[in-house]
Design a protein around this nucleic acid. Structure first.
Lengths: 78, 78
DNA sequence: CGCGGTAGTAAAATAAACTTTACATTTTGT
DNA sequence: ACAAAATGTAAAGTTTATTTTACTACCGCG
């Protein structure tokens, strides 16, 4: 079952920009596991806003820069 | 078990600001239930960044305005 | 080639988000 | 006071995030 709200993320881009940090390093700094970072980078799920906030802080970016709503065409009910 | 990283939110404030929308109205517009909105407003858990993004869009605010990391003093390992 | 570090994948288990339903309390309008 | 709408709480259930563990592939280095 795919998530209700798809998001696109530029995590990897910003991770590299922020000093070419490794996944493990980022994971440590935000208090998550490498697999969690992996899964987010790969778009397998969207993190909690708490984790997203911490990632944004470490990467020196805004959440809006990091994560973006997928525009789903023709699938909206409004 | 309380969440690992507490967040503070100004959801209610912005909900009122954005035309005094009811919880139900906001819930409908973001595709969630009223209870979900309630729980977020009451700080019972932090939503996914996907839902947070949709809320921010509807309320015309940034995620950073809506949700803020709780600064926990003396609980960091680095 | 063998080694260490990084990245990709996956399965099982646990924690947390989110839904559904139901009921109590407060607020608002008449 | 009464009714209706909005808010608050809660329990049980489903789905998704996150962890833990483990294995594979790629790359630079000796």
């Amino acid at each position: 079952m795919k998530p209700k709200y798809d998001i696109r993320n530029a995590l990897r881009l910003h991770r590299v920009k922020a000093g070419d940090m490794t996944q493990q390093e980022l994971a440590d700094r935000v208090g998550a596991t490498r697999q969690t970072i992996m899964s987010i980078e790969k778009g397998r799920y969207n993190p909690s806003v708490g984790l997203a906030l911490r990632i944004a802080k470490v990467l020196g970016a805004s959440i809006e820069e990091l994560f973006e709503l997928e525009e789903e065409e023709g699938d909206r009910d409004g």
